[in-house]
């Protein structure tokens, strides 16, 4: 039975069906080459070598930022166990995003976790908002179209999780460590 909005899908289909590698286009050449990975089909929105290098640098920076934010979330969840369940979706989000961007996520150093749960949660939310801005900026400047699409989707995913994440007020009501 057709879905309620199937005509939305009936418009010309331009969905890019690509493998993980192709989704990143040439952007992660430097990253994956060091891991000896195979590459998928060439990026349909091909970019000159210099721009591919710029994309690889962008991906490197984003991987480091996501890993750092993932570490903050983990440390907050460990310090404030009352927040652990609420932060679980963010942990899954970061893990999935890193898996698309790199074969081996870097180990981020521990961070200072605020003593109060509401302050810790506020720090997490600030970090997620910053990560959303970085992913958005990466999508805007990527030379590779598929990479831009992937980063924009990740930015949207962070935005959705941030909108659904607990706020410091709700944490101080029910999320005490």
């Amino acid at each position: 039975m057709p879905g309620p909005a199937d005509r939305v899908h009936a418009v010309p289909d331009t969905v890019i069906t690509v493998s993980r590698r192709a989704a990143l286009g040439g952007a992660t050449v430097a990253v994956a080459a060091t891991a000896g990975c195979q590459w998928g089909p060439p990026d349909s929105v091909s970019a000159p070598a210099a721009k591919r290098d710029a994309d690889a640098t962008t991906v490197d920076h984003l991987v480091a930022e996501i890993a750092a934010q993932a570490r903050l979330v983990a440390d907050v969840a460990t310090t404030h166990v009352g927040l652990a369940t609420a932060l679980g979706p963010l942990t899954a989000l970061h893990r999935a995003h890193l898996a698309v961007l790199t074969d081996q996520a870097p180990a981020a150093p521990s961070v200072m976790v605020p003593a109060r749960p509401d302050a810790a949660l506020a720090a997490v939310r600030r970090g997620e908002a910053g990560l959303q801005r970085s992913l958005t900026a990466g999508a805007r400047k990527a030379a590779s179209g598929p990479l831009a699409r992937s980063l924009a989707s990740m930015a949207a995913g962070v935005a959705m999780h941030l909108a659904a994440a607990p706020t410091p007020r709700s944490a101080s009501k029910g999320g005490q460590a």
Binding site: V15, I16, T17, V18, S19, R20, A23, P89, A92, L93, A96, H97, V100, R149, S150, A152, S153, M154, A156, G157, M160, H161, A163, A164
Partner: peptide, 14 residues
């Protein structure tokens, strides 16, 4: 519900 890869089903399903 919050999605990890909104708009890019092949990334979500891989």
């Amino acid at each position: 519900s919050p999605e990890i890869f909104p708009g890019t089903s092949e990334l979500a399903n891989r």
